Amino acid sequence: MVLSRVHGRQGELVLRRVDGHFEIISNGVFLMDTRNGESERVLVGAAVDAVKADGVRLLIGGLGVGFSLAEAVSNPRVGEVTVVECEPSVIAWHGSHLSDFSAGAVGDREVTVVCADLLAWLRQAPDDLFFDVMCLDIDNGPDWTVTPANAALYGESGLELLVSRLAPGGAVAFWSAAASEVFAERLASRFASVRTVEVSVPRGPADVVYVACAS
Rank of each mutant, 00 (worst) to 15 (best):
G66T: 06
G66E: 10
F67M: 10
S68K: 10
L69G: 07
L69D: 10
L69C: 08
A70E: 05
A70R: 12
E71S: 15
A72C: 11
A72F: 12
A72T: 14
V73E: 09
V73T: 11
V73P: 06
N75A: 13
N75T: 13
N75H: 15
N75Q: 11
N75K: 12
P76N: 12
P76Q: 12
P76W: 11
V78H: 04
V78W: 06
V78D: 06
V78P: 04
G79E: 09
G79A: 05
E80D: 14
E80N: 11
E80S: 14
V81L: 05
V81M: 07
V81E: 09
T82F: 01
T82M: 09
V83D: 03
V83N: 06
V84T: 06
V84A: 00
V84N: 03
E85W: 08
C86W: 12
E87P: 03
E87Q: 14
E87K: 04
P88T: 13
P88K: 08
S89N: 06
S89D: 12
S89A: 15
S89L: 00
S89P: 00
S89T: 02
I91H: 01
I91L: 12
I91S: 00
I91T: 11
A92G: 03
A92K: 08
W93Q: 09
H94Y: 01
H94W: 02
G95A: 00
G95N: 00
S96K: 12
S96Q: 09
S96L: 02
L98A: 02
L98D: 04
L98C: 06
L98H: 01
S99Q: 15
S99N: 07
D100S: 12
D100N: 01
D100G: 02
F101A: 05
S102G: 05
S102N: 02
A103F: 02
A103N: 12
A103W: 08
A103I: 07
G104A: 14
G104H: 13
G104I: 13
V106H: 05
G107C: 05
G107T: 14
G107S: 15
D108G: 07
D108E: 14
R109S: 10
R109C: 02
V111R: 04
V111E: 03
V111H: 02
T112S: 13
T112P: 00
